[in-house]
Design a protein around this nucleic acid. Structure first.
Lengths: 218, 218
DNA sequence: AGCAGCCCCCTAACGGTGTTAGGGGGCGCG
DNA sequence: CGCGCCCCCTAACACCGTTAGGGGGCTGCT
């Protein structure tokens, strides 16, 4: 964990260390001091490379999405649009608390720009107007971020209490089922579906609806 | 601000005080001690009413959405679905950092349940299958939360530096335009649209696409 | 009337946080 | 050789969430 001063640490080293700490302790447990010791240094030394914690989190956000890959140019725009959505979600799910880190942050790493560029190219090539292409791209990222945020954050909250995802959703289901049926008949009836822990099909459902809506524009 | 012990404070008082502190100092500046003095009490006293800060944030989340209203039953399911989306966004934009507070949190206040109940009722009445109705509802909240999160968080970050939204988007536009045109032609060409500060039409675009995609299911 | 008990708030203190001030060692260059 | 700059250090500040333990005042029973 703590390594000898590997000689002149860089912002990349710091980002990597932050990523390691994030994975181990979660976003709440990520502190300047822990990142510092992870990189083999005292906390205030970080401030030579980084203005403040916010900037370190920017670095961390870029590092999280740095693994992004441009999908092979296969299939039509729709298939590729879907694939971007799926990969983005996978990327966020791969690192602990990634959605919370990335959420309100504007990441402009080279990989992100390349993906965005490719995405816009496909959309424009398919016949979308310029403004629509831009908004379609924004729509996708808003949906994915919102989805994953809800997907992985109750997880961390409840797993701290030692519960599995299945247990959590079952408990939530009980909450809905226990409501008075005369005032909330639909909640009671759909409790099972509302708390279905199968997040993959839930995500895919939204993704398909969005793609359908965009297709209707052409 | 700090008031005399208004005699036996309740969780509602605490929630109201937290809301006031949130509005004044933002989520980052919201501390147990500040909420305590706001309500006229010492910090540790809060722990009699609340298990920890996380639970206080749950209260705060409920308080934020407590203003939710069930739209009048006017128009078809689509119009009402759109209206729910718009109102949810308006609700989150109304309070500072509201999206960050609500984001990964499961709110189950009576108003939220009433809205959800009504929403499901409309969707089922329109002919959606049970599972689809549940997922459509989830889709809407994921989109709105993701959208508003990105919408209002760069705002707070940059307004701390004394910049207006227009200035921020103009600066972002410059970033895109400055890219090498041979590697990122689409980003350069669409810079204007990508950084268009008109969030209302951006939101409406996504909302309409989602509604279209759902309509295609019937 | 008196006393038990509980509700609710208090003070004190803990370890940890982000961040600033200021010092100093070691390297590259004149 | 020595100047200067880069980069890290120690010390310290104010603030944070949270726990321990004490006590005052009301309720209700005897």
């Amino acid at each position: 964990m703590a390594q000898p001063p590997s000689r002149t640490l860089t912002r990349e080293h710091i980002a990597a260390a932050a990523l390691a700490v994030l994975e181990r302790e979660g976003l709440a447990g990520l502190s300047m001091r822990k990142v510092a010791t992870e990189v083999g240094v005292q906390a205030p030394s970080l401030y030579w490379h980084v203005r403040n914690k916010e900037e370190l989190l920017d670095l961390l956000g870029d590092a999280i999405i740095a693994d992004a890959e441009i999908p092979l140019r296969t299939g039509d725009w729709r298939e590729q649009y879907l694939e971007y959505g799926r990969r983005y979600r996978a990327l966020l799910l791969a690192k602990r608390d990634a959605a919370k880190v990335v959420a309100g942050r504007l990441t402009t790493g080279p990989r992100v720009l390349a993906v965005l560029e490719d995405q816009l190219d496909r959309l424009r090539g398919a016949g979308f107007a310029d403004a629509d292409a831009a908004m379609a791209s924004y729509l996708l990222s808003a949906y994915v971020q919102g989805f994953v945020l809800q997907e992985q954050s109750p997880l961390s909250a409840a797993e701290a209490a030692g519960a599995s995802r299945g247990q959590v959703s079952r408990a939530a289901g009980e909450t809905f089922r226990a409501l008075p049926a005369e005032t909330h008949p639909n909640l009671v009836a759909l409790a099972e579906h509302l708390t279905d822990p199968d997040m993959d099909t839930r995500f895919e459902f939204g993704l398909q609806r969005i793609a359908d809506g965009l297709a209707a524009l052409l």
